[in-house]
């Protein structure tokens, strides 16, 4: 099951899974985009694909979507949550409405979905919950701390959920991508640190198979963030990051 299935990274993950034995249930906001992704995955050899529309920026009934997914798939062995936006930090700084909107989509709505999913997987006693967070959540920086706060909060929530489900046979994977060349980041100049969604997707699939807890992707972001986290706040607060 993929939630936010029309995002660039989610599409590439789905393509990695597109083989005759694989059944996919895709959830996203836009029906016409879902149709395009569905046809793509079926062409690439996916066993069966079903879709459901849901808008995560407004309170919606995720229980019904989950019931439909469960009915289609029989049981859900892996769920990937991949939706989100990159809010404009300047706009957020000027308006609490913008800030709340960004926090609601990137944090509150994901937590609400995860609450339902957590109980589902706890009952099932098996499976993987993989969620795309971000390296931006590892430390607050002036250039995108609203997004960072959402992703940081999400990472903490996932830690707790992992702790709760670890003894129940359920694996929780926190995915922390660095710079990925997707429509979400189209406004940026791309340098050597940027990775393609396909590279990121391959690492995600591997991490799911290996039951990893946290995935920095590409791998070098682990070391970059390690250094960034170690900079003393006295110095960090004066840096322009």
């Amino acid at each position: 099951m993929i939630i936010g299935a029309t995002s660039a990274i989610a599409q590439e993950v789905a393509r990695q899974y597109a083989s005759p034995g694989c059944q996919l249930f895709l959830v996203a906001r836009d029906e016409s985009k879902l149709d395009i992704v569905k046809a793509d995955l079926l062409s690439r050899g996916a066993g069966n694909v079903a879709t459901a529309c849901m808008d995560f920026s407004v309170a919606s009934d995720f229980n019904t979507v989950l019931d439909n997914a469960n009915a289609f798939l029989g049981s859900i062995d892996t769920v990937l949550i991949a939706y989100g936006t990159l809010p404009d930090q300047v706009a957020c700084a000027e308006s609490s409405d913008e800030t709340l909107k960004a926090l609601n989509l990137n944090l509150v709505s994901v937590i609400s979905v995860l609450t339902v999913l957590g109980n589902y997987f706890e009952k099932q006693q098996s499976g993987t919950i993989a969620v795309i967070s971000s390296v931006a959540g590892d430390r607050g920086r002036q250039s995108n701390y609203v997004y960072g706060a959402a992703k940081g909060g999400l990472s903490i929530f996932l830690q707790g959920l992992r702790n709760r489900l670890a003894t129940k046979g359920v694996n929780v994977l926190t995915i922390k991508p660095g710079f990925v060349d997707t429509p979400m980041t189209k406004a940026f100049d791309k340098g050597p640190l940027w990775a393609s969604p396909k590279t990121v997707a391959k690492s995600i699939v591997k991490a799911i198979e290996k039951n990893k807890d946290t995935l920095y992707v590409p791998w070098f972001w682990f070391w970059i963030m390690l250094i960034i986290k170690f900079i003393p706040e006295k110095i960090f607060k004066r840096m322009s990051l």
């Binding site: 660039a8 395009i36 992704v37 046809a39 793509d40 062409s43 690439r44």
Partner: peptide, 9 residues
């Protein structure tokens, strides 16, 4: 590069 979907094979 993002118009990379198959439609049917």
């Amino acid at each position: 590069s993002s118009l990379d979907h198959f439609i049917q094979f």
